[in-house]
Design a protein around this nucleic acid. Structure first.
Length: 218
DNA sequence: TCCCCGATTAACT
DNA sequence: GTTAATCGGGGAG
């Protein structure tokens, strides 16, 4: 079973995150390793930029976020809550700290491997959420900084592919999820009505402010 | 050095 | 709806 599509043009990724994010909707994320290939159709993304208080890059380069300041078309993978990996695609030119978080996808291929990686959860929950998506396709911190299309030290290769399915003509967008700063910046995009979107809760992902926005702790 | 808290998820009640 | 799990970054002292 071959993965459909051709790699996206790197120049498309060298644009501001809020431009790249909706462009990535309906593109295919594919990851190959020794066990085979797994691929999903991206249905939910979020943009993060350097002048953005909610972005890891907001306070300038550091050991953790330096990949965001590198060349576009690479993976920025960060560790969160002591147990989760989340995958981003780096955008903008070198020197600008920006990336697009991959939040959810529709499982298309390598579903057995993804299900195994996700401890047998049902199809619906395989890739619905940024950490779930990364876990399903097998992306970890070992892949941080990897160039798309180039094998990593861990023996994995990731691609973003265009199989001819265009992004939604009018993608839904609204506030980002799980952040506490710049909550009002509507830099989350998703495929309207898709059951694979992370905040889909029966009634569907709402417009700005409906749910799962800006949860506070303390 | 200490301490708080996060671009979350899963398992509870 | 609520909460534990779990650890590294970064601001405060």
């Amino acid at each position: 079973m071959d993965v459909p599509g051709d790699p996206v043009d790197g120049r498309a990724l060298a644009q501001p995150s809020p431009v790249v994010a909706p462009f990535l909707l309906n593109k295919i994320l594919a990851v190959a390793d020794a066990d085979g290939v797994r691929w999903v159709r991206l249905v939910e993304v979020e943009a993060y930029g350097e002048t953005d208080p909610a972005s890891h890059s907001f306070r300038g380069p550091s050991n953790r976020n330096n990949v965001m300041f590198g060349s576009p078309g690479r993976l920025y993978v960060y560790f969160s809550y002591g147990m989760h990996w989340c995958a981003n695609v780096v955008t903008e030119r070198s020197g600008v700290g920006a990336a697009v978080l991959l939040r959810a996808g529709e499982p298309l291929g390598g579903i057995e491997a993804m299900t195994a990686a996700r401890n047998g959860v049902r199809l619906r929950d395989l890739c619905r959420g940024p950490a779930r998506l990364a876990q399903a396709v097998g992306i970890t911190g070992a892949d941080n900084g990897a160039e798309l299309g180039t094998p990593t030290a861990a023996g994995r290769t990731a691609w973003v592919l265009d199989d001819g399915v265009a992004p939604p003509a009018r993608p839904a967008h609204g506030p980002r999820v799980g952040i506490s700063r710049a909550v009002e910046v509507p830099w989350r995009w998703w495929v309207e009505g898709s059951p694979w979107v992370s905040t889909f809760r029966g009634g569907g992902p709402g417009p700005a402010g409906s749910n799962a926005v800006g949860r506070r702790s303390s």
